[in-house]
Design a binder for these strands. Structure first.
Length: 591
RNA sequence: GGUCUGGUAGCUCAGCUGGAUAGAGCAUCAGCCUUCUAAGCUGAGGGUCAUUGGUUCGAAUCCAAUCCAGAUCACCA
């Protein structure tokens, strides 16, 4: 049980035994004591004043004495300042915790809770390579999945691949027109980049043709509709839907190139999935549900045959769920896929990691599921994250202002290499060890950078300023870990005979932070926020570094102190490493 | 126009279920490597928590209004 919970129940018991009434944890607040006061945890007394009809100081005094008397193993002393009861936890409590947990690699992980959850993330399009925004999505989704596992959930990571539609046909047409049979192999290009180039070529040609039509006197809207390359593309989409063999073959070949490219990127950044859905296989889903909705009168049909849902009562608009020609739209297949996921895996919760530009769409999806009375409707959760923008504004693939995922990862890794070489600490590493180290540090910096901020906030990325390796960063935490490991390679953990020890301020501070780890995992799980965890890990590393510079571990004053500090260092390394693991960040043994 | 986000130090961000003098990192300045890795540590300067009003013993945090920025409201996905 966490220390805060123990304090909570101790306070509740003491209040109940001494005062009239029933008390719960809602009646008072427990905070960490501010550094300028003496104490570890603070009870805020003001909220009790009314019900107990006493002054804060009186309550604090009575409560403090009771706590000390009834829980001598927990509290060693107290003081009251201006209505705040500051409690000092006994050194024995912290030392016992350290002795029990200092080598527990499962510290912070929670027991299985029997719940199953699916986390869908990544959702790439197969017409262009992944960019910086995808990286945020991937890191977030992967990390949230791991955090939920640590909270005891059974987690399925899933991915919906956007592998069909007009945008895919654009790349295909451009390839037919301009490639002359070139392939990734003949041009020595990564498959997804290769296909992406033809997507760009499409847009160039399209723009050119629209310009020509306008020059010949056509208005803009008609020009956009009648550009030959656009007409060809639309024809291709129809051919694809009709299953025309040569179109399907081309589609399969080009998607195959893209998948080869994606596999390389995913492997590089450490992303994986338990289940991949392909839109080409799911886009017809949901049509039967539309009929069901019509029968239930949740949906209605307009004169032209299109099917709608009226959400004006919920503050939204009317939304189309089936076109007049009977084909499905985006939301139709999402309704179908939501149901399929639930039926197939009996999941208790379905989390969608999707950008905040789709807030409206996801709201509609959930509302429709609710109105149709689906049992899983309330368990659909949209983890909405903000866009990654450049100082100049949004990234636009058509304008070539996209920060490519592979490029930025490569850049981070070579920056890591430069930093490492400049420091010259690992000259004895083999070439392969060095490559692993550069990758560990570069990717660690990248992931930490994207995960340390609140997911729902949009973030600005400046490609001119390289991502830092100092301060609130991944490498800072990795470095703290490597320093600990360096000591632990030379000095082994041991258990001296139990002796009464007192803790120095910094020793206690580190322990104080370590104790919170399980609670932080719970919080991060509840909020679906890797940022919570990242902030905690940074704070822990920072506290440890202060301790490290101030006190020697190997040359501690006594044997007992040396053992205690070794245990402290060991436990810190375990918490840092399992915490970073949940963010998808590896830890180097040396750096 | 409707709906939804966000606005905290020069920059990037914590803090938001109300609590003590609002915290980090970067950048700037001043110190610390003959002792466990200086990718580190210690210190300084830097704030009208967008604005105004309200609720309260107490508001960056809750409520209302206003201003600013962004997203979205497609028979695109």
């Amino acid at each position: 049980m966490s220390i805060v919970k123990q304090i909570q129940s101790a306070v509740i018991n003491s209040l109940s035994s001494n005062f009239e009434g029933i008390f719960t944890d809602k009646d008072f607040q427990i905070n960490q004591t501010k550094p300028e006061f003496e104490g570890d945890y603070t009870i805020v007394l003001f909220s009790l004043v009314k019900s107990l009809k006493k002054s804060p100081d009186e309550i604090g005094n009575e409560l403090g004495k009771l706590l000390l008397k009834n829980y001598p193993e927990l509290f060693s002393s107290f003081n009251i300042i201006k209505g705040f009861l500051n409690l000092i936890i006994t050194d024995e409590y912290w030392i016992t915790l350290l002795q029990k947990k200092h080598n527990d690699i499962c510290f912070g992980k929670h027991a299985m809770n029997g719940k199953k959850v699916m986390v869908e993330y990544s959702s790439p399009n197969t017409n262009k390579p992944l960019h910086l925004g995808h990286l945020r999505n991937n890191f977030l989704g992967w990390s949230v999945a791991e955090i939920l596992k640590a909270n005891g959930y059974e987690v399925l990571k899933s991915c919906i691949v956007n592998d069909r539609g007009i945008h895919i046909c654009k790349s295909m047409i451009a390839w037919e027109l301009f490639a002359n049979g070139a392939t990734p192999a003949t041009t020595n290009t990564k498959g997804d980049h290769f296909v992406g180039e033809y997507y760009v070529k499409f847009n160039d040609e399209y723009k050119k043709q629209v310009g020509e039509l306008k020059a010949s006197g056509m208005n803009e809207a008609d020009a956009e509709k009648n550009a030959p390359i656009m007409l060809q593309t639309q024809q291709m989409l129809q051919d694809w839907e009709a299953g025309k063999p040569e179109v399907i073959e081309l589609w399969k070949m080009m998607n195959g190139w893209v998948y080869e490219g994606f596999d390389i990127t995913y492997k590089m950044i450490g992303t994986d999935f338990d289940k991949s859905y392909y839109e080409s296989e799911t886009y017809l889903l949901g049509k039967d549900i539309v009929q069901e909705g019509l029968d239930k009168k949740v949906f209605f049909k307009k004169e032209d045959g299109s099917v709608w849902i009226d959400l004006t009562a919920d503050g939204l608009d009317e939304k189309l769920v089936l076109r007049k020609d009977g084909t499905s739209v985006y939301i139709t297949q999402d309704i179908g896929l939501a149901k399929q996921k639930y039926d197939q895996y009996k999941i208790d919760e379905s989390i969608y990691v999707i950008g905040d530009e789709q807030n409206y769409h996801m709201k509609v999806l959930k509302l429709i599921a609710q109105k149709l009375g689906f049992p899983y409707a309330n368990d659909i959760y949209h983890l909405s994250y903000g866009m990654v923008e450049l100082p100049t504004g949004k990234m636009k693939s058509r304008e070539g202002t996209v920060v490519d995922a592979d490029d930025i990862v490569d850049e981070m890794i070579s920056t890591a290499q430069n930093h490492t070489e400049a420091l010259g600490k690992v000259k004895d590493f083999t070439a392969e060890e060095l490559n692993i180290l550069y990758k560990t540090i570069g990717l660690g910096a990248m992931k930490f950078y994207l995960l340390r901020v609140d997911p729902k906030k949009k973030m600005i990325f400046n490609p001119e300023e390289s991502i830092d390796f100092h301060g609130f960063t991944g490498p800072f935490i990795q470095y703290t870990y490597a320093r600990i490991k360096s000591i632990l390679r030379k000095e082994k953990l041991f258990n001296p005979e139990d002796k009464h020890l007192t803790l120095l301020t910094l020793e206690k501070e580190v322990l104080f932070n370590l104790e919170q780890f399980p609670q932080i995992i719970i919080e991060a799980g509840k909020e679906l926020s890797p940022a919570t965890l990242a902030n905690y890990l940074f704070h822990l590393a920072k506290t440890f570094n202060s301790f490290y510079t101030e006190h020697s571990i190997a040359n501690a004053e006594t044997n007992e102190k040396k053992s205690l500090r070794l245990q402290l260092a060991n436990m810190t390394s375990i918490v840092l490493s399992s915490g970073m693991q949940l963010l998808g960040i590896q830890m180097p043994e040396r750096m």
